[in-house]
């Protein structure tokens, strides 16, 4: 990609001035576009360019005159058959890397792309470690007395149910309890697993 910029720069400097800036540079390397394909491509390339007179808006989004002029130039170049990267490099020649809204993959820029991926991996490792630590606590919930098992003393059991209901708003205080497990009627007996 650097080679493209260097080449573009080298050729731009010898291009005849009368041809104007829009057509300076190397000849187009792709097929000319037209119609709906051109419209769609113009939008997508313009959305990668930063409008210089706005703050952070892309050329595709900005209603500013400058952005509209740049968009027209993008369109013209696409119609002539220039590729996205050639067009972006052309604007970069005038405005610097600043004009690209999507960082290219060179220099330290790769950090901005690798950062989130590294973050995901590290985060996944941490979550995995936390789960493994707790995973050693034996077996599935079904085989063990549940956290919500009621005490054997019936009077105490009623009190517990009452408190649970107050706390969680569920009959018997256990969500996903009686109702979820097969539609038995909810009651003290139903919540025992």
């Amino acid at each position: 990609m650097r080679a493209v910029i260097t080449l573009a720069l080298a050729l731009a400097s010898v291009a005849p001035a009368s041809s104007g800036p829009a057509t300076s540079g190397p000849p187009p390397s792709g097929p000319p576009l037209s119609g709906q394909a051109l419209d769609a491509r113009t939008e997508s390339v313009a959305s990668l360019l930063r409008c210089p007179v706005c703050q952070g808006l892309s050329v595709a989004d900005s209603p500013a005159t400058m952005a509209r002029n740049m968009k027209a130039e993008v369109r013209e170049k696409l119609a002539a058959g220039y590729q996205q990267e050639e067009i972006l490099a052309g604007f970069e020649r005038s405005y610097g890397e600043f004009v690209r809204l999507e960082p290219t993959l060179h220099g330290v820029n790769w950090l901005v792309w690798a950062g989130p991926i590294a973050g995901l991996l590290i985060g996944a490792l941490v979550v995995g470690a936390v789960l493994r630590r707790t995973g050693r606590a034996p077996a599935a919930a079904e085989e063990l007395p549940s956290r919500h098992t009621l005490p054997d003393d019936p009077r105490l059991a009623v009190a517990v149910l009452r408190v649970r209901e107050l706390a969680y708003g569920w009959p018997g205080g256990i969500e996903g309890g009686p109702g979820a497990r097969g539609g038995e009627s909810g009651g003290p007996a139903g919540s025992r697993s």
Partner: peptide, 29 residues
């Protein structure tokens, strides 16, 4: 992860400016 990504993208132009003296943008795309 979302927080980290948005934070990274937002301050990244400052990182590049400080490290390389290059003005770049991290935008909507």
């Amino acid at each position: 992860l979302f927080t980290f990504t948005v934070l990274l993208g937002t301050v990244f132009p400052l990182v590049v400016e400080a490290a390389q003296g290059v003005q770049m943008s991290v935008g909507r795309p």
